[in-house]
Write a protein that binds this DNA or RNA. Structure first.
Length: 335
DNA sequence: AATTTCCTCAACCGCTCTAGG
DNA sequence: CCCTAGAGCGGTTGAGGAAAT
């Protein structure tokens, strides 16, 4: 017993859309809207298409103000920083880029942007063998912590974190140099361990380079996955919790318990990114300079020749978020 | 010029989530 | 509370064009 198909596959046309089909669909939606029922829509118009196919065609190509190709560097930066922040949540990323569709961004990332970044890294590797040893360290770390527990996306983001760090500071290994690690709250420093230090963590949880231990089986960690971290900006330690449930206490750069009320969780699960950030705006932020060690902060200031474009919608988000963007873009442009 | 390989991206698939009965 | 249909999402595929041989 499989799942019932959403439409009669035998009587449905597949493949590329003809201009006539596009006109039919666009005209109808312009006049009457979708009617809130995509499944019924093709029958009303007389299209031999699956409702899902109509929806996709409308969202990705026919609706007004859609942009294709020609991604700007600013858009690249936003995609990069959000990908590192939240992973392959393409719909959320697309919501930050007016006129872009999730499908477009997904394709752009998979075919160009990712290669662009990895290409830079390969170039760096050729130039500097120190970087190679760093990659080996990463691989070793992955081996130690049961890599099958990490999704490809999470691994990729981990690697990107590493690579961005290397691009920024190619002569030192992020993982081998604790001075580069973000400072943790003194009281909680001891609660965050590396997989090597804690075999239990190594086998059960994703190890985050910035101190975020993600237990994917724990419901609270759904948020952590998203924040992992809007980005890595949050650390949490559920086991150490002293706080009541439903109390959301974000804290940039400090490892501590992280809880969230149902409404906020719902917003995040729905991918309502603006509201996600608005939730973030309510945070009482700690001084962002504490997030990175002074060494990184100094280098950040001296190397950065660019700043976030004033047009970025993300500029109005939390200080911490902007800082992350700044970090990502600075790293990106620093090569 | 012919063939092969690579790349791009539109579209599909199958899953999860959600609302409504 | 359960079930179902529809919406939405992310991963994957494959046709077609471009580049390389």
């Amino acid at each position: 017993m499989g799942r019932a198909p959403c439409c009669d596959k035998a009587n449905v046309k597949k493949g590329p859309w003809s201009p006539e089909e596009d006109v039919k669909l666009k005209d109808y939606i312009d006049k009457y809207g979708t009617g809130g029922n995509w499944i019924a829509l093709p029958q009303k118009i007389g299209l031999k298409r699956c409702g899902k196919s109509c929806r996709l065609r409308w969202l990705n190509y026919l609706r007004p103000n859609i942009k294709h190709g020609g991604f700007s560097e600013e858009e690249d930066s936003i995609i990069l920083s959000l990908y590192i922040s939240i992973g392959s949540r393409w719909s959320i990323i697309a919501a930050q880029l007016p006129g872009r569709t999730d499908n477009d961004i997904k394709n752009y990332w998979n075919t160009k942007l990712k290669k662009k970044l990895l290409g830079r890294q390969k170039q760096m590797n050729r130039q500097d063998s120190i970087t190679d040893s760093t990659e080996n360290n990463l691989n070793n770390n992955n081996n130690n912590k049961s890599p099958q527990n990490l999704s490809n996306s999470a691994l990729e983001r981990l690697q990107l974190h590493m690579q961005l760090q290397n691009l920024q500071s190619p002569f030192s290994s992020f993982y081998n140099n604790p001075i580069l690690w973000p400072k943790l709250h003194p009281l909680l420093q001891s609660t965050t361990t590396t997989p090597n230090q804690n075999p239990k963590l190594a086998s059960q949880e994703s190890f985050h380079p910035l101190g975020v231990n993600v237990d994917h089986q724990h419901n609270d960690m759904k948020l952590a996955e998203i924040n992992n971290g809007v980005s890595s900006l949050y650390s949490e330690n559920v086991e150490q919790s002293q706080n009541p449930a439903h109390e959301f206490q974000p804290n940039f750069g400090y490892s501590q318990d992280l809880r969230i009320d149902n409404h906020s969780m719902d917003l995040m699960n729905r991918g309502v990114s603006k509201e996600l950030f608005q939730v973030g705006n309510e945070f009482e932020l700690t001084n962002s300079s504490s997030w990175w060690s002074e060494e990184v902060e100094v280098e950040r200031k001296t190397t950065s020749s660019s700043s976030w474009g004033s047009a970025s919608v993300l500029d109005q988000t939390t200080e911490g978020m902007v800082m992350l963007q700044d970090y990502a873009q600075m790293s990106y442009h620093s090569v």
